[in-house]
Design a protein around this nucleic acid. Structure first.
Length: 914
RNA sequence: GGGUGCUUAGCUCAGCGGUAGAGCGCUGCCCUUACAAGGCAGAUGUCGUAGGUUCGACCCCUACAGCACCCACCA
């Protein structure tokens, strides 16, 4: 006997362990078609947030769905070493001990990071298991931790080196001194994508550079960089400055003179039309400098302090300190023309938030243009498909304007670049130092200290996880994978680069479909952020959390008192009683229900509660079915006589329709539609109607009818459980274990049972129509009862015209608590009347004629209104002429139906008035 | 500057060239042995604005407004 209400905590852990230890998550060799998903590998240092939970719910639903449909499913998972992010975490730990990574040295530091990785890496995979993810944990699991691959393990690293070497040999990787975005705090280059430019309030200054008999006024938001100026530029067509182009001006504070040059880049309408040119610290100026063969001057050290290229006075000053000094000195010399507030775009490092400095440094780059072309073609030809489709535009536009990718990072944690230098500074790229020494015996080499951008190894995951560069059978079977489920924020970082790398090295796409999932926001549509306190931990939704614990947890690590206060306020307002335990299934169903093609997903606790209730409904429906079928004859013996009522055939018919809806929804990645179809079928039809009528059939039916009812009860329920399993795996498994045997199904686990397939031949339109009428009569009766304030328990006599079917009668008796009396004409009393198709019904009850007239008049005016609208359309000659015949016919039937009802209603009204 | 998405019930969102929908919330009545995490009944909308196409527009087209996001080198 099941408990009265379902308790997720009691079942979830148990089932997950059984599934995993039984090996149900592994791929199955065989003839079946393959279905493969590559998990976006989470960072080792991270914890599961709502975005992960959402994504993984969708992936797991897809995997379970296809596994049940007989596909050879392989959900390849792993974790990412997340270079910068992880290094920062460990550096912060050291900081607390009063140390820096330099105190440890590179080797010891990396050891320390590995230690940290071992202990924290398991966190996210443990959380994933709580979500029920049926991932192939032991696949590509070189470390034996049942956590899939790790992007820095030996197998994955081999692929990274191989790709680097091959790209180098093909001339697609080069090293060079370029202006790159530099994070002065981390002391590393970062890629364009890792820089966020935000509009901020700043100032703009105008500086005067004196020349012989003239002077130039330039505008700048970064006056300190004037120490690195190499020219002043004007537009070639600007008449104001035509005469001075080619002359030189004094660069204040430096004792240098710089030329006035003409370049199209300058907008003569902006400011004075003169631009200072600082090729060492500005990307535009860098281009201008190249065009005019002007040598860039770096005036900052890598830590963003002024270097020795500047006058003595400024050396060693931090960049903003230098700014103040420069401005003060210019003011003193009368060369500061103006100083105004100004909105400017400030480039900040995505990791540290510090202002990024364009810095001239030696870096490694990948030439992207040639790689991008095939990636563009794949999307254009439709071989690679985005869902929702509009993301193709984003993908395409980025690839069309792609820049070379700076892949070197001046960090310690990551794949060290497989490049060496000899004493003369020549570069050698090789698979290993041994290989290099064999080729060049006796030579001494020094390895390049830089590591690769994390995304370099991520880009290879679709094939490196399958064993590349070795030839493996899995690459034939699982590449391309079926679908990538990921967020739009990494279309450039990851999706596009995987496509390019896969096509280049394997000739295959990494995946056929890309499903871009919505971004999870809070219920009001606000971005989730720690400082607002509106983040949710998926595990808190699953296990529940008290107000106190939540408040404490949300403020830990918040340094500012104002933030703490804000967070406390938010939690008090939104979670005054903490969060109840909804369980994994409810959370998953919520995610699925909210997964439409919209760009954001506003996570609403109310919805989650509603779907928890749905789980409870399913639980209790099963409880009811078991109570009525266990130990009883459910017609497992096919020879026993079985009689199926219209209601029985109807629910089976609807089940076929639901199965078809769900199949289509999965095919279109419309998880919301799949969830809604299941919800409606289980709750609105099976529970609200079929179970209720089944009670009647079990109480009053013949032996054959009872047997048919029990058979229908268990079979439809058993099928519904399988239908819902991909979304709510735990509760369906738990219930299925009891229900399946009654339905004659055997199997170790529901997750291995076949997925329900719609059988169109079992759609019974006649039964559906008959039940529609029965429902309408019941609804109308209930409506009258309620309007007339008849106590719910009171049985009433109900006069019915139009020879109702047995289906209708049974429903009226049991679901509307009525004793139908079949008549040709309703008796001549003042009782209220409702009209349903061919039937008129009238509860036998004394009423207030005035109130009843009011009710009938309301109905009359509604009908008149509808008839008016419909007739107006039919009166339109061009409608009748040009609209499809079926539509016109439908409209005529509509009018006829309304008019018949109207006639009956007004007759009744007339009677009342006598 | 270029691009994308959104605007439908109090809230969060589906939707479709032919009768405006769901969940939550709200109102009323019910603890009826599957389920009060429930049952039954009910109220609520100039479908952002203005044009156009069409027999017919919430839906298609154009413009505009508001909101959100992405990309981009204006000092």
């Amino acid at each position: 006997m099941l408990d009265k209400s379902f308790d997720p905590a009691a079942i979830e852990q148990r089932w997950y362990q059984r599934w995993e230890s039984a090996g149900h998550f592994s791929a199955r060799d065989g003839e079946t078609p393959a279905y493969c998903i590559q998990l976006p590998p989470p960072n080792v240092t991270g914890t599961l947030h709502m975005g992960h939970a959402f994504q993984q719910t969708l992936m797991d639903a897809l995997i379970r769905y296809h596994r049940m449909r007989g596909f050879n499913t392989n959900w390849v998972v792993g974790t990412d070493h997340a270079g910068i992010a992880t290094q920062i975490v460990v550096e912060r730990q050291l900081e607390e001990e009063g140390k820096s990574r330099h105190d440890l040295g590179r080797e010891k530091f990396i050891e320390r990071v590995w230690q940290w990785k071992q202990q924290s890496g398991a966190t996210i995979t443990r959380q994933m298991r709580r979500l029920g993810t049926s991932a192939n944990w032991t696949y590509a699991d070189t470390e034996g931790q049942k956590a899939g691959y790790f992007t820095m393990d030996a197998a994955m690293s081999r692929a990274v080196v191989e790709v680097f070497v091959r790209l180098y040999e093909e001339g697609l990787i080069y090293r060079g001194k370029r202006l790159v975005n530099w994070d002065p705090v981390l002391g590393t280059a970062v890629s364009d994508l890792e820089v966020d430019t935000e509009e901020e309030d700043g100032r703009i200054w105008e500086l005067r550079y004196p020349g012989e008999g003239f002077s130039m006024v330039v505008a700048t938001t970064r006056p300190e960089t004037m120490l690195g100026d190499v020219a002043v530029a004007v537009h070639p067509d600007d008449d104001r400055y035509r005469a001075v182009v080619g002359k030189r001006v004094q660069l204040p504070l430096t004792g240098r003179t710089i030329p006035v040059i003409a370049d199209e880049y300058v907008d003569p309408a902006f400011g004075t039309g003169c631009v200072k040119i600082t090729p060492g610290h500005d990307f535009n100026d860098y281009q201008v400098g190249r065009r005019h063969q002007l040598e860039p001057i770096s005036m900052l050290r890598l830590d963003a302090h002024v270097n020795d290229n500047a006058p003595q006075k400024y050396r060693g000053l931090e960049r903003f300190e230098a700014r103040r000094q420069v401005l003060a000195d210019l003011t003193a010399q009368g060369l500061l023309v103006s100083d105004k507030p100004y909105k400017l775009r400030v480039p900040r490092s995505g990791r540290t938030g510090v202002i990024v400095e364009p810095m001239l440094t030696d870096q490694w780059f990948v030439k992207m243009e040639g790689l991008a072309k095939p990636a563009l073609d794949a999307a254009a030809s439709g071989e690679l498909k985005f869902y929702p489709e509009h993301w193709t535009t984003t993908y395409r536009q980025w690839l069309e304007n792609i820049q070379d990718w700076c892949i070197s990072r001046q960090l310690w944690w990551g794949h060290q670049i497989p490049a060496w230098y000899d004493d003369a500074g020549n570069v050698y790229v090789a698979r290993s130092e041994e290989e290099l020494k064999k080729k060049h015996p006796g030579k001494a080499f020094r390895r390049d200290p830089d590591v690769l951008d994390t995304w370099f190894s991520s880009a290879l995951v679709p094939f490196s996880s399958l064993g590349w560069p070795q030839k493996t059978k899995d690459q034939d079977v699982f590449l391309p994978s079926s679908v990538l489920v990921t967020g739009f924020d990494i279309i450039f970082f990851w999706v596009a680069r995987m496509v390019m790398m896969s096509l280049h090295f394997t000739g295959k796409l990494p995946f056929r479909d890309v499903y871009i999932n919505a971004i999870v926001r809070d219920a009001e549509g606000e971005k989730m952020s720690k400082s607002k306190g509106n983040t949710l931990d998926p595990l808190d939704l699953i296990d529940g959390i008290t107000f106190d614990a939540l408040a404490k947890k949300s403020t830990v690590g918040l340094l500012k008192a104002e933030h703490r206060q804000k967070v406390q306020g938010y939690i008090k307002a939104h979670f005054p009683n903490g969060i109840p335990a909804f369980g994994t299934d409810a959370l998953r169903f919520t995610f699925a229900s909210l997964a439409s093609f919209s760009r954001t997903l506003n996570f609403d606790l109310g919805r989650c509660e509603g779907y928890r209730n749905f789980c409870n409904k399913l639980w209790n429906a099963t409880r009811f079915v078991l109570m009525n079928t266990e130990g009883k004859d459910c017609a497992l013996d096919e020879k026993a006589p079985v009689e199926l009522s219209t209601w029985d055939r109807w629910i089976v018919s609807l089940l076929q329709r639901t199965e078809a809806e769900v199949e289509q929804a999965f095919a279109e990645y419309r998880f919301d539609n799949a969830a809604a179809a299941i919800y409606r079928f289980v709750w609105d039809e099976y529970c609200d109607w079929y179970l209720e009528i089944a009670k009647d059939q079990l109480a009053k039916g013949s032996e054959a009818v009872q047997r048919g009812t029990r058979r229908t009860l268990v079979r439809v329920l058993e099928t519904s459980l399988r239908l819902a399993h991909p979304i709510i795996p735990f509760i369906t498994e738990e219930l299925w274990q009891s229900v399946a045997p009654l339905a004659g199904k055997k199997g170790e686990s529901i997750m291995l049972a076949p997925y329900p397939k719609s059988q169109p031949e079992r759609i019974d339109t006649a039964a559906e129509a008959e039940v529609e009428t029965a429902k309408a009569v019941v609804n109308a009766t209930r409506n009258l009862r309620s309007a007339m304030k008849i106590p719910p328990k009171e049985r009433i006599t109900l006069f019915l015209t139009g020879k109702p079917s047995a289906t209708t009668l049974a429903a009226t008796i049991s679901l509307a608590r009525s004793e139908p009396k079949l008549v040709d004409e309703l008796p001549d009393t003042g009782s209220p009347v409702a009209v349903v198709g061919a039937h008129r019904l009238m509860p036998h009850i004394e009423i207030d004629p005035a109130k009843e007239r009011e009710r009938l008049n309301k109905e009359l005016s509604r009908l008149t209104n509808e008839i008016g609208k419909a007739k107006a359309q039919l009166g339109n000659a061009s409608f009748v002429e040009r609209a499809p015949a079926a539509v016109v016919e439908q409209m005529r039937e509509r009018v006829a139906g309304f008019e018949a009802t109207l006639a009956k209603v007004s007759a009744q009204l007339q009677k009342l008035s006598q």
